[in-house]
Design a protein around this nucleic acid. Sequence first.
DNA 1: TTTTTATTTATAATCATTCTAAATTTAGAA
DNA 2: TTCTAAATTTAGAATGATTATAAATAAAAA
Lengths: 149, 149
Amino acid sequence: MSNLQHLTETLQQAGMRLTPQRIAICKLLAETEEHPTAAAIYEQIKSQFPSLSLATVYNTLDTLVSLGAVNVLGHAGDDHVHYDADMEPHVNLACVKCHKIIDIPSEHVHHLDSEITQASGFKLLGARVLYYGLCPACQAEPVEAATTW
Amino acid sequence: MSNLQHLTETLQQAGMRLTPQRIAICKLLAETEEHPTAAAIYEQIKSQFPSLSLATVYNTLDTLVSLGAVNVLGHAGDDHVHYDADMEPHVNLACVKCHKIIDIPSEHVHHLDSEITQASGFKLLGARVLYYGLCPACQAEPVEAATTW
DNA sequence: TTTTTATTTATAATCATTCTAAATTTAGAA
DNA sequence: TTCTAAATTTAGAATGATTATAAATAAAAA
């Protein structure tokens, strides 16, 4: 099953309508390699739906998050909340300089779930594994004032 | 070396003055088991420094963060940024219901650093490993509308 | 001292996100 | 088809954490 299907079916099974706006948001989330913010999603879909409201984007994202189909990465060096539709355990790696976020498949994160569950007795609902540093390209350039995190 | 010493020395070595306000903030960060927000720190220190300004708290936190002595956890189910002076690799585990955050020592997170460095070529500066779920106490109570993340 | 610089403070400004109420769309019944 | 009620979208206002600004204070240097 494609990730897009997963997202739309999640909405349907929650009894929600598959409106064109919601489909477009799911499509973007499923296909992007980025880790978009609400504003970024709004900007990219705006051309298809000139009347689109930011509230719709936030509502849809919140719904998908509370249904467990989308992950919230939180702020990543900027002042925007980033979202990630890839729910497979993986590491998100952000460059504090160019603000790009990439995914790293990791052997060890796969084991974290059970390790944490056993140690804590929590019922896990999600994770946010975000490392930050300087990407190879930005390491080449001189370091300036540290970014605020 | 105590964690408090580490924090104050970090400030000094950066050429900054050890003002009473900054010392109090470092002390609180070093001694708390919580993962306080700027507002929480402000509230707790206010009694010692009635004239304290929130700006001072934010400034000091930002400085400590950019010096790599304090970690920013980001939002944790509420709308506040949480800080953590424990820089040892560990898992932060937040309950989405009672909003408590606890630390979990983890064998696997210790290995993540080298794994990520090798896979990406990034120069790592920090990490934010935050899992969320329901703590044992909150699992007992009935589940209500999902919290927005 | 006097001068310079760092720091704190109070307050205003910013801006991402949330809220609200009206307008629109939809699914299903008649 | 048309009607009706519920869901959804929308525009714009409101919220509130954080940041910026400029004046006041404190400390260090001369």
